[in-house]
Measured scan of single mutants.
Amino acid sequence: MTLTLTVPPGAKVRVRITNENGETTEIEVEPGETVTITLPAGSTVRVEVEVVDPDGRKRTETFTLKP
């Protein structure tokens, strides 16, 4: 399973991925970048995406991906 994120110009994104064992991976994606994350097959993962807009506003979306 893959997750692809494209960050709009001016925004910053931090992604936290937590697996079933509670292990967390965190990455930051710079403005204008596209990143593809390969998620472990057969695992349920929690993905938290934090977006910081150019004006400093933050918003966070959290979702769970199941196999």
Results as ranks from 00 to 15, higher is better:
Ala11Ile: 00
Thr38Trp: 09
Glu23Ser: 06
Ile27Tyr: 13
Gly56Lys: 00
Arg46Glu: 06
Asn19Pro: 15
Pro31Ile: 15
Glu48Phe: 02
Pro9His: 09
Leu5Tyr: 07
Thr25His: 06
Thr4His: 13
Met1Glu: 03
Pro54Trp: 06
Thr44Ala: 09
Pro9Trp: 08
Arg46Tyr: 13
Glu33Ile: 10
Thr34Ser: 07
Thr62Asn: 02
Val47Leu: 02
Ile17Asp: 03
Ala41Ser: 11
Glu61Asp: 02
Glu61Ala: 08
Thr2Asp: 03
Arg57Trp: 02
Val45Met: 03
Thr38Leu: 11
Ala11Trp: 07
Leu65Tyr: 14
Asp55Met: 01
Thr6Leu: 14
Val52Ala: 02
Arg16Cys: 09
Ile17His: 12
Arg57His: 04
Thr24Trp: 05
Thr2Gly: 09
Gly42Thr: 13
Ile27Ala: 12
Thr4Lys: 07
Val52Tyr: 04
Pro9Thr: 10
Val45Leu: 13
Gly32Ser: 14
Lys12Gln: 14
Gly22Thr: 09
Glu26Gln: 05
Leu39Arg: 07
Thr38Asp: 07
Glu48Cys: 04
Thr34Asp: 09
Met1Cys: 15
Thr60Ile: 13
Thr62Trp: 10
Val52Asn: 01
Glu61Cys: 15
Glu28Met: 04
Val35Arg: 03
Ser43His: 09
Thr62His: 05
Lys66Thr: 15
Thr36His: 08
Val7Gly: 01
Arg14Ile: 08
Ile17Gln: 08
Lys58Ala: 03
Val35His: 13
Val7Trp: 15
Glu26Gly: 07
Phe63Glu: 01
Arg16Pro: 00
Asp53Val: 00
Thr18Phe: 12
Thr64Cys: 15
Val13Thr: 12
Asp55Gln: 02
Gly32Phe: 12
Arg59Ile: 09
Glu26Lys: 04
Val7Tyr: 15
Pro67Phe: 15
Ala11Phe: 02
Thr25Leu: 09
Thr18Lys: 03
Thr6Asp: 15
Leu65Val: 13
Met1Thr: 03
Thr60Val: 11
Arg46Ala: 02
Val13Pro: 10
Val13His: 00
Leu39Ile: 05
Val51Lys: 01
Thr64Ile: 15
Arg14Val: 13
Lys58Glu: 01
Glu23Trp: 13
Ala41Arg: 10
Val15Pro: 01
Pro67His: 11
Thr44Met: 08
Leu65Gln: 00
Thr6Lys: 06
Glu23Thr: 08
Gly22Val: 07
Ser43Tyr: 07
Glu33Phe: 13
Pro67Gln: 09
Arg59Asn: 01
Gly42Glu: 10
Val49Thr: 01
Val29Asp: 15
Asn21Val: 08
Ile37Trp: 13
Gly42Lys: 07
Glu20Val: 04
Ile27Lys: 09
Lys66Arg: 03
Val49Ser: 00
Phe63His: 03
Pro8Val: 15
Ile27Gln: 10
Ile17Leu: 10
Asn21Gly: 09
Arg14Asp: 13
Thr44Leu: 09
Ala41Phe: 13
Pro67Asp: 10
Asp53Ile: 00
Pro31Asp: 12
Arg46Lys: 06
Lys58Thr: 10
Glu48Thr: 08
Thr25Glu: 08
Met1Ser: 04
Ser43Asn: 13
Ile27Thr: 09
Gly32Gln: 14
Leu3Met: 04
Glu30His: 08
Met1Val: 07
Val7Arg: 06
Ile27Leu: 08
Thr4Ser: 05
Thr36Val: 12
Ile37Gly: 05
Glu20Thr: 03
Ile27Glu: 11
Thr36Arg: 12
Arg57Pro: 00
Ile17Lys: 08
Thr62Leu: 03
Gly42Leu: 08
Thr60Gln: 02
Thr6Pro: 14
Ile17Pro: 02
Glu48Trp: 03
Thr4Arg: 07
Arg46Gly: 02
Glu26Ala: 06
Arg16Asp: 06
Thr4Tyr: 11
Asp55Ile: 00
Val52Trp: 08
Val29Cys: 11
Ser43Val: 11
Asn21Ser: 06
Pro40Gly: 06
Asn19Lys: 08
Ile17Val: 10
Asp55Lys: 00
Leu3His: 08
Arg59Leu: 03
Arg59Val: 07
Val51Pro: 00
Ser43Leu: 14
Thr24Pro: 08
Thr24Gln: 08
Thr38Asn: 08
Met1Gly: 05
Val49Arg: 01
Pro31Ser: 05
Glu28Ala: 08
Arg16Met: 05
Gly10Asp: 06
Asn19Leu: 08
Phe63Lys: 00
Pro40Phe: 12
Leu3Val: 09
Thr62Ser: 06
Glu33Gln: 07
Gly10Trp: 01
Glu48Lys: 02
Ser43Glu: 15
Gly10Glu: 12
Thr34Gln: 10
Asp55Arg: 00
Thr38Met: 07
Thr2Pro: 04
Pro9Tyr: 06
Ile27Val: 10
Glu23Cys: 12
Val7Asn: 02
Glu23Gln: 06
Lys66Val: 15
Glu61Lys: 03
Gly56Arg: 00
Glu26Met: 04
Leu39Cys: 14
Met1Trp: 14
Pro8Glu: 14
Glu33Met: 07
Asp55Trp: 05
Pro9Ile: 08
Glu50Phe: 01
Asp55Val: 00
Lys12Cys: 08
Thr36Glu: 13
Phe63Thr: 02
Glu28Gly: 10
Arg14Ser: 14
Glu48Gln: 05
Glu23Ile: 08
Pro31Trp: 11
Val45Pro: 02
Val49Asp: 00
Gly42Trp: 14
Glu20Asn: 05
Pro54Tyr: 04
Arg59Phe: 11
Thr60Glu: 01
Glu28Tyr: 04
Ala11Met: 01
Thr18Asn: 09
Thr62Glu: 06
Pro67Cys: 15
Glu33Asn: 05
Arg57Glu: 03
Glu20Lys: 05
Asp53Glu: 04
Lys12Thr: 12
Thr18Ser: 08
Glu50Thr: 10
Ala41Trp: 14
Ile37His: 11
Glu20Tyr: 08
Val15Trp: 05
Gly32Trp: 14
Val49Trp: 02
Arg59Gly: 00
Arg59Ser: 04
Thr36Cys: 15
Thr36Pro: 10
Leu65Trp: 15
Thr38Gly: 09
Pro54His: 07
Gly32Asp: 11
Thr24Phe: 07
Val7Met: 09
Ile37Arg: 11
Pro54Met: 05
Thr18Arg: 05
Pro54Lys: 09
Thr62Lys: 02
Thr4Trp: 10
Val52Glu: 14
Glu28Cys: 06
Asn19Cys: 13
Ile27Arg: 11
Asp55Tyr: 03
Val29Phe: 13
Val45Arg: 05
Val35Trp: 13
Val29Pro: 13
Leu65Asn: 00
Lys58Pro: 01
Ala41Met: 09
Arg57Cys: 09
Thr18Ala: 04
Glu26Phe: 03
Val15Tyr: 06
Glu61Ile: 15
Thr25Cys: 13
Leu3Thr: 04
Asp53Gly: 11
Phe63Cys: 15
Thr64Trp: 15
Gly10Cys: 06
Gly42Tyr: 10
Ile17Arg: 08
Gly10Gln: 10
Lys12Arg: 04
Val35Gln: 04
Thr34Asn: 12
Leu5Pro: 03
Pro31Cys: 15
Leu5Cys: 14
Thr6Gly: 14
Gly42Arg: 14
Pro54Asn: 04
Asn19Ala: 10
Lys66Tyr: 15
Glu23Met: 07
Val47Lys: 00
Leu5Ser: 03
Thr62Ile: 13
Thr62Phe: 07
Val35Ala: 05
Val51Gln: 02
Arg14Ala: 13
Asp55Glu: 02
Pro67Met: 14
Arg46Leu: 11
Thr24Tyr: 06
Pro40Gln: 11
